[in-house]
Structure formats: C-alpha cells, structure tokens
Design a protein around this nucleic acid. Structure first.
Lengths: 118, 118
DNA sequence: TAGAGTGGTTACTAAAAGTATACTGGTTGC
DNA sequence: GCAACCAGTATACTTTTAGTAACCACTCTA
C-alpha cells in the first residue's frame, strides 16, 4: 500500500507494509542474535569443541556466558552436548545438522563484515 | 590444530582454532544484531518509510527504541534521514546502498526462520 | 602435596535494554 | 475549540543481560 504525502510543492509516495508480528527477521535474530551465540555456532563448524576451549576461542566470554548460550543453543537444537570421558570429565559440544543450516547465514555475515572493514 | 583427547577406550581428535579478537561474526552481529535493527533495515527495503509508520510496522517497539536504533543505523551509514517537508514536519528514512548490501544476509535469515518454523 | 586443568554452579553487581507516560510545537480536519 | 496526527524529547522506572569472582568435585603432573 502506498500513501501520499503532501509536501510544500510536491507529492511523495511512501511505501507502507504490514509486518507479521513478530516479524521473521526479528524471530530469527532471537535465535542467532544473542551475544556470542552466532560466534559459538561458527566455532563449532569444523568439529566438536570442548567447553574451556570454546571459552578461550571466544576470547573474553566468561564461563557463565558460554554456559548460558550453550544451554540455549542446545535447547533450540542447534548444538549437542556429549560427555566423551567421565574421569577426568571431558565434554564436547557439536553442531547439529539443523545448526549447520544456519552456517550459510553466518558465512554471508562474515564476508559482509570483512568486505566492509567492520 | 588438532588436539587428542584420551577417553576410556578410544582417542578422539578435537579441532582447535584461534579466533581473531573480536571475531568477524561477533563484529558483524554488533552492527546488525541489536534488537529491531535488522527489522528496521528490512522494512526499509521497498522504499522510504516515515518515523511513526516504522514504529507501527515493528509492532510494539517504542518510539524511544526506534529513535535510538535509527540513530545508530544512521551513524553507521546504513540508513539516511531526510526531512521531506518542514510544515507539517515529515521525515523519511531510507536505506543506503551500503545498507542494501546487508539485505542479502537478512534475506537468508528470513528464509531460514521461515523454513524452520521459528 | 601444591598447582593447574576439567566442567560447571552460585551469588552478587553493573550496565544495557526496554516500557510507559507525558510533553513540545506545529498542522489538519470537524 | 478540540482531537488527532507528525517527529521526536524527557523522565522515570523495571527487566534483562553481562560480567566478576569464588567455589565444587574431580584428575593429572611435577
């Protein structure tokens, strides 16, 4: 739907569209957009990574943050948690097939950031 | 770099990579990832939109939020603000060419969200 | 036996994000 | 005159998120 706006000496048409509420972009961002979430997913793309290692990769994210984000990502089915050894405890986080479907987006995001020197 | 992890009865190799700090994914997310920012950009893709109209499109975002996000997006060169009429005041926000380069990512995000019923 | 590493949890604080309401100062329409 | 619209601004408030630091139980290495 177009709406006309009368200005001093011309008429300008402005586009108006309704958005599904809450809109798809926003809903997607709620899954991938949290701080560290996309990064975590990205760092799991080459294979399973252990908890403390992941913390280091993220360079500065606290254990609490990494823990919280991993739990969210696990609950949403994007990563899985696997205990690979009981004593000493060793846990590996792995991206799921569903999680991999999001890597396309992250790849584009990475390229975009890189190309624009952000 | 691969690191070997000894488990009860096998050895598992785990991938370890260093991340540029702060990594590209995270940096990109700081530009597009704030609440409403991606949505705003998306809603500008079909042409300029006025302030209050944008608020309504976002369905629930307060004026303060919309205002803040628009200012951020403007400062980052993703949108422009144009006064199209002084009396009565009418302002239109428009996506820039640079802003358009991010729409690819958002398109993918939208499709992903849709395909996965999120 | 001390120190470092594993994968967390808990408690606390600081900062950011978001909501709600009212206000300005102008215009348009009834 | 009154209400509703425009594009914001201001203020106050609550909620959420982020981050620090200490702690747990366990193991491995020097």
């Amino acid at each position: 739907m177009k709406i006309a706006i009368k200005t001093a000496n011309n008429v300008k048409e402005i586009n108006s569209e309704n958005c599904q509420q809450p809109c798809l972009i926003e809903r997607g961002m709620r899954v991938l957009g949290g701080k560290w979430k996309a990064s975590i997913l990205w760092h799991l793309k080459d294979g399973p990574v252990r908890f403390n290692e992941l913390s280091r990769m993220l360079g500065g994210a606290s254990k609490k943050m990494v823990d919280q984000r991993l739990k969210e990502l696990e609950a949403q089915g994007l990563v899985t948690r696997e205990v690979i050894c009981d004593r000493p405890i060793a846990v590996a986080y792995e991206i799921t097939d569903f999680g991999r479907t999001a890597l396309d987006i992250l790849e584009k995001l990475k390229d975009w950031t890189e190309d624009n020197g952000l």
